[in-house]
Design a protein around this nucleic acid. Structure first.
Lengths: 313, 313
DNA sequence: GCAGGGCCATACGCTCAGCGTATACCCCTC
DNA sequence: GAGGGGTATACGCTGAGCGTATGGCCCTGC
């Protein structure tokens, strides 16, 4: 078995096959993104090792010797077979790689704590998490599953309704025990805020009958005690740590509510009538396992919502 | 065609095959004369490139994954085919590589000036010259053809009688014209000597009826004018350059005599009764082209001897 | 239970194999 | 003759791949 003796020249075999196929050292060089002298040296090394001339060189062209022809034939066939099998195995493996596009808050609060259970349900699936902070735009084209708010008949996606968009104030149990409900004494509370969109939701929650007065906003009864964050995951983490009251999207916090890590901080809530859905872009071939994964996610969310007594309609 | 993408990992494919075959990174490392960490890194690189786990590692052993099995099967078959063909082509080519073991003086004086003619007669034969200085001992075992003095029925060799051992004083024509023949005035000459064996031959030539007087030797009529060399090729070269008279072995100088580069410096000569022969060791498979080469060499030598009027008996 | 040995994984530092650039030579086309 | 294309070879540079050292785990024997 002389395999280990030719192994140092293994890459040269690939280069030789390209030179034989193209009939040109320069063409082979371009194929491998190296220069012609590199190919020339590689071929010369192989010839020296074999002590056989494999190419006849003329200034106008190169031609294979009979020995070179023989080597080329076995290499062409063998490397093709290797390439095919390697490619097949890679593609098959890639097919069980599922790319998810979720908000980072949903991933950290809802999915990641459940990864072990997910892996038990789908042991052959590898997940790639494409986490989005801030606004959830249109998902990238190479994503298998995303959560987004879309119209139920959006023709771009396969759609699995996932959770209604319900927004409610939440805090930790300890914070609630210490400070009491939101409705009792607003001045005692710290509000954990993120951005202008959150402000609008806070407005509807805190003033069901009208808006805040003036452009300065956040004045009067709800003044002071506002902490501002740049990431919603951190907002929720701060709430769980007892820092204050955060706005909670049920689709994100359902698990935390079920576990008692978070509790409602007041009786109000906003139902936008919109639904968060799991979506798979139709522009990308639907991997066979995707529907099963979506069904699983939907079932877990349904259990969550039942557990925390949220009506789905 | 993804050949060029896996090409940087070509050597790793060999290493992977060895690890799969042996079931051990350490054994594969020993096979390639590298250390275990090197193999570990190579396999990890291949797995990273493929994004597929190929081995399951446990502290007690490694086992192939199904994907690893698939890759191993195609590699085992393909690398075996490559190895077989490469090995076959190499061995076939090696069979037309003829290794010659000649004295360096014979090679330089007799064969090398004839290499072009030889190559024309045997265009598919590559020669490897194993040149020997000093005493011609037993030829190495990997030699196809050697010149040696052997008994005609030596069972170790295939034997082609080549040339009788005839020793004569020779010099250049210019030297002869200037200094005259050896017999006329010995004091006028420079003797080009090599070693003790040459001394013995000089003794017989210069004193056909007896030896030199005393241990000091080289005294009296033949005193002075001795240049001593360490290589016989250089002795002959000095003679051709007109430096003096050298002892010439016909088997070596036949061509030079035929070309007139060297001439007899006197009438004497020594016929030992021994023959230089071309020999091929029976311990080595006789390549089909060897007899033809020996016949050719014998024919050329016969032409030489005829040309310089040396009787062969 | 402990010591020793074997195996794979990983970090760190070293070095030389292989590269690109430059050049020479040859051939072909216009 | 000028220009372009191809292969071969020399020279200098550098990072890929190596060995060494170490850690963690498992197994065996005392």
């Amino acid at each position: 078995m002389a395999l280990r003796s030719i192994a140092p020249l293994a890459r040269t075999l690939f280069i030789f096959e390209a030179a034989a196929r193209t009939g040109s050292f320069s063409a082979a060089a371009r194929e491998f993104n190296v220069t012609q002298p590199s190919v020339s040296r590689n071929i010369a090394q192989l010839e020296a090792w074999m002590e056989v001339r494999l190419f006849l060189r003329t200034p106008a062209c190169i031609t294979l010797t009979p020995e070179g022809e023989e080597i080329y034939r076995v290499l062409r066939d063998s490397l093709e077979r290797i390439d095919h099998t390697v490619g097949t195995v890679r593609r098959r493996a890639a097919k069980t790689r599922i790319t998810l596009s979720f908000s980072s808050s949903f991933a950290t609060q809802w999915l990641v704590p459940r990864l072990r259970v997910f892996k038990a349900a789908f042991p052959d699936v590898e997940l790639r998490l494409d986490l989005v902070q801030g606004m959830l735009g249109q998902p990238p084209s190479d994503v298998d599953i995303a959560t987004r708010v879309v119209e139920p008949d959006d023709p771009r996606y396969h759609i699995w309704p996932f959770a209604p968009e319900i927004i409610m104030p939440v805090c930790s149990p300890a914070y609630l025990a210490e400070r009491g409900p939101l409705d009792a004494d607003p001045q005692r509370h710290v509000f954990l805020n993120l951005n202008d969109e959150h402000k609008a939701h806070w407005n509807r929650l805190l003033n069901p009958c009208g808006g805040l007065e003036g452009d300065g906003g956040w004045v009067g009864k709800w003044a002071g005690k506002w902490d501002v964050f740049s990431d919603y995951s951190v907002v929720l983490q701060a709430a769980q740590n007892g820092e204050g009251i955060a706005l909670g999207w049920v689709s994100v916090i359902s698990r935390a509510l079920g576990e008692g890590v978070l509790v409602r901080a007041g009786t109000g809530e906003i139902r936008t009538g919109r639904w968060h859905s799991l979506i798979a872009p139709k522009a990308r071939p639907l991997q066979p396992v995707v529907p099963a994964i979506c069904d699983w996610l939907v079932a877990v969310m349904r259990d969550d919502l039942a557990r925390i007594d949220v009506a789905l309609s």
